[in-house]
Amino acid sequence: MSALLTSRNVADLLGGVTNGVIYSLVALSLVLVWRSTRILNFAQGAMAMIATYIGFAILAPSTNYWISMAVAIVAGMVLGGATERVIVRALYGKPEINPVVAMVGFLLVLESVAAAIWSTSSRGLPTPFSMVDWQLNHKPVAMSPFALYEIITAVVVMSIIAVLFEYTKLGLQLRAAAIAPEVSRLLGVRVGRMLTLGWMLSSGVGAITAVLVASNYFTGLTPTTMDGVFAFGFIAAAIGGLDSPVGALVSGVAMGVVLQFVGDYLNSNAIILVALGMLVVSLMLRPNGLFSAERQRRV
C-alpha cells in the first residue's frame, strides 16, 4: 500500500490534481463572467494579480496571511465591479472583437502599472503551510500540507459558488439575469446590478486563485505570474465549455492530471504544447465545449 502511494504514477496523479484545481478556479472565474455578460475576460489573471499585490505588498509584510488574503479578495471584488461598470458596460452590443481588444488593453495597463509600482522582480509571499511533502516509510508522498490547503480552498470556493447559484434567491436572480435579461427586468430583477455582481464574484474567485499561485514558493508574485496560469485556465474553460461551471471544474482537474503525466514522462516544455493540441482538437470536435448545453450556432 505504501509502495503504491509513493509510486511515480500516484505522485503524478496527486501533483496533477493540485495543479488542476488552480486551472479549474481560473476556468470557473472565466465562466462566471462569460455566462452573464458574454465577454471573455482576458484581464482575469492581471486583475487577480493586482488584487494579490494589494493584499500582500501594500500591507506590512508582518500582516497575518489570512488578513492579507481577505484584503486581496475584497480588492479583487471591488476591481471586478469597477471594471464592469466602467469598461465592460460600454462594450455591450458592440462587435465581438471590441471586448477582446479592450480586455487585452486593460491587461497591458494592469501589468505595466504593477511593474511600475512593484517592479518586475519576484516577491515571495508568506506560505501558511509547509511545502515539504509528507513522508511514508521515508519516501515522499506527492502531497504537502500546502498542496492539501490549495485543494481544500478550491473545493470550498467551488461549493460556495455552487450553493449561491443553486440554492439562494440571489443565485436565481443571477442566473435569470444571465439567461433572459429582458424577462428578468420585467419581473423586477435589477439586471445591471446582477451583472456587476457576477463580475465581482468572478474577480473574488480570481483573487483567491492568484493568492494560492503566488503563495507557492516556486512561483512567487510578479506582474506576469498569472499569464501562464491564465492560458491553462482558458484552455480548461474552452474545452469544458465557457458556459458550463461543471465543465470548467472537470476539465481543469483532468487537464492538470494529463499534463502532469506529460511533463513527467515526456518533457516539461511539451506541457503547454500538448495543452494547445488538446484545445485545437477539442474545439474542432465540439466548438462550444464538451459540457456545453448550448446548441452549435448554425450559419
Binding site: I235, L283, P287
Partner: peptide
C-alpha cells in the same frame, strides 16, 4: 479550428499559442 470558431474562442487560442511559444522554442 478557426473554421468553426467565433470571436473570443479563436482569440483565446492564439493567446495560448503566444504564451506557449517560449516553451515550444525550448522544446
Amino acid at each position: 479550428p478557426a473554421t468553426r470558431l467565433r470571436g473570443p474562442y479563436l482569440a483565446g487560442m492564439t493567446l495560448a499559442f503566444a504564451v506557449a511559444f517560449g516553451a515550444i522554442l525550448n522544446l
